[in-house]
Computed example of a mutant assay.
Amino acid sequence: MYGWVIYNGHLTGNKFITFSKWIQYAGEKEGIDIKLKRNDQVLPIVSSNGLGLLDHDQFPAFVIFIDKDIVLARQLELLGIPVFNSANAIELCDNKVLMYQALGQKKLAIPLTIIAPKIFTGSKINSENFLHIEKSFDYPMIIKEGYGSYGEQVYLIENRTQLIEKINQVHDRPFVFQEFIKSSYGQDIRIYVVGDEVVASVKRVAENDFRANAQLGSTMEAYQPTRKEKELAIQATRALGTDFAGVDLLIGANGEPIICEINTNAHIENIYKYTGVNIAEHIISHIKLELNC
Rank of each mutant, 00 (worst) to 15 (best):
H171T: 05
G151F: 07
S136C: 04
I142W: 06
D172N: 14
Q169Y: 13
I143M: 10
V205L: 08
N213H: 14
V205F: 08
V202N: 09
I167L: 07
D188E: 11
V193W: 13
V202I: 15
Q162D: 12
H171M: 02
Q169F: 11
F175K: 11
Q169P: 00
H171S: 11
S201R: 12
V154D: 05
V198Y: 04
S183T: 13
R190Y: 15
I181F: 07
S149L: 10
F175P: 03
V199K: 12
Q215E: 12
S149V: 08
V193F: 10
E207R: 13
V199E: 01
Q187T: 04
D196Q: 15
K135R: 15
A200L: 01
Y139K: 10
E179R: 14
I167T: 07
L163E: 02
E197W: 01
I164Q: 08
D209H: 13
G195K: 15
D138Y: 12
I157Y: 08
Q187M: 09
Q169M: 10
K135I: 02
V198C: 09
Y192F: 15
K203P: 02
V170D: 06
G151Q: 11
I142N: 06
Y185G: 00
R211A: 10
D196I: 01
H171E: 02
I143G: 08
A214D: 13
K144C: 01
Y147M: 04
Y150F: 13
A214W: 15
P140C: 02
V199W: 05
Q153R: 13
M141E: 05
H171D: 00
Q153T: 15
E152W: 08
D188G: 10
